[in-house]
Design a binder for these strands. Structure first.
Lengths: 245, 245
DNA sequence: ACCTGCCAGATGTCAGGACAACACATTGAC
DNA sequence: GTCAATGTGTTGTCCTGACATCTGGCAGGT
């Protein structure tokens, strides 16, 4: 029970705990650490890696939060049984598709500054009727229509361009503008397609659609984006992993 | 900027960091700490509460994970703007409804030990055809049908009774049996109702349904439950909050 | 054979200190 | 007036050390 070979580079700017977490994560994905396997104890790991116990603990906590491993007091730490699936976390649809090998593309239907609707104003924390950027996109995967997305953003946060939206996706633009999205509240539901939606998405009227409304905040606690997304239920599902502390 | 009054009880078995986190959380929910407000610095808090900085940090981290507050290096800690919504986390539908003031009830359609279907076997990590407990329930909220849930559990983990399922809910039974559910992988989608489903749920055939398949694991990393849930989209939606570390 | 108490080993909690990295405001030079 | 350098305060990371609490196995007595 010595576990995978893990080396830390103290000259790297990457935090030590993160280096350790990444290498354990990789070992689990590679199957080197099989489901049910026990990890070395925190003290053993600290000794072997030349790190302190708090640092090792921080690394392990990171993996627990990701749902990869489980801790039991008095017993030890084990790899979660069953295959590992990665959740969407805070990635955009663009990144999500690219990761699963599908070709994303986007058609921007609308991009303008408008008066903020009351419902959006409440979510974004601005006064109704104030100016906000409004955005409506039809998203494709491998050339097939997949989703209609409508987004509202406060003005002056970032300058959206048609070009950038088509090639990079909204979240990449936000990141490039120095905005760090830290979290979001999401509401996921379903409803039947209207005639207009059905035509855009290539479904029949009344076809089931997966809906998600999301309000995302950045590292200043500001709400930076409110989105209403509609996915073809026949082509898309959301994956979420939940882990308690 | 002294913040809410927070007192810690060192004689309590509740961890200090948890006491602090709970009281901050309560102050935010009460509105005593308004969105955008800054918290005292970690050092000030540690000094005021008579705690060490790591303990205060742990408390704050807990709130960041819950999506209540946001930290910025070099600047400080702020309450997230916008109203706070709590996510479902790992609660059962039973608890979820009770919390929002709706009366849950359950009709158990099936409760038996069966040979494990191949698809479920893969999720639970058992061999196909082996004995598993199978469970099918129709759930109501305030007397109206809301969802059909089908669950599979490994045998010998817990003894399910009709009585317990109707009065307490599955997750309460698991907890009472000493099983500590720590995390789950969920897949959320939508599809149209079949004729049989529509009749059970009081919807029309083809009506949109919200679907969720969930595989939950306990603190030993064992998969303890696999569920396929079907909700009336007209009456139910899932809420999820995501927060990055 | 069974039960009880003890013990080793593991994670959980907490303290106190140190330095690094970063953001922002202020000050100073040009 | 503008811009760069500096200083202050904050969170991020990492260390050492200690004790608490829980689990599971073992030894011993019944």
């Amino acid at each position: 029970m010595t576990g995978p070979e893990i080396v830390v580079d103290r000259s790297s700017p990457v935090p030590l705990y993160f280096q350790v977490a990444e290498q354990f994560s990789a070992a689990i994905q590679r199957g080197e650490l099989a489901p049910g396997d026990r990890l070395d104890s925190e003290l053993q790991l600290a000794d072997r890696l030349g790190l302190s116990r708090p640092t090792v603990r921080q690394a392990i906590q990171h993996l627990v939060d990701k749902g990869l491993i489980v801790r039991r007091r008095g017993v030890g730490t084990q790899v979660v049984r069953g295959e590992v699936r990665r959740s969407v976390e805070l990635t955009s649809l663009h990144d999500d598709l690219a990761r699963t090998g599908r070709q994303p593309s986007t058609s921007v239907l609308e991009l303008a500054t408008v008066a903020c609707p009351a419902q959006v104003a409440a979510a974004l924390g601005v006064t109704a009727g104030s100016a906000v950027q409004h955005l409506r996109r039809l998203r494709f995967a491998d050339g097939e229509p997949l989703a209609v997305m409508e987004n509202w953003l406060p003005p002056d946060l970032v300058r959206l361009t048609l070009d950038g939206l088509q090639s990079r996706g909204l979240y990449a633009i936000l990141r490039a503008a120095g905005l760090r999205v830290r979290g979001a509240q999401q509401r996921i539901g379903a409803r039947a397609a209207t005639a207009a939606e059905a035509q855009m998405l290539g479904e029949r009227r009344g076809a089931p659609l997966l809906t998600m409304t999301r309000t995302a905040y950045d590292d200043q606690g500001r709400y930076v984006e409110h989105g209403v997304h509609i996915y073809r239920a026949s082509r898309y599902a959301l994956e979420v992993t939940v882990a308690e502390r």
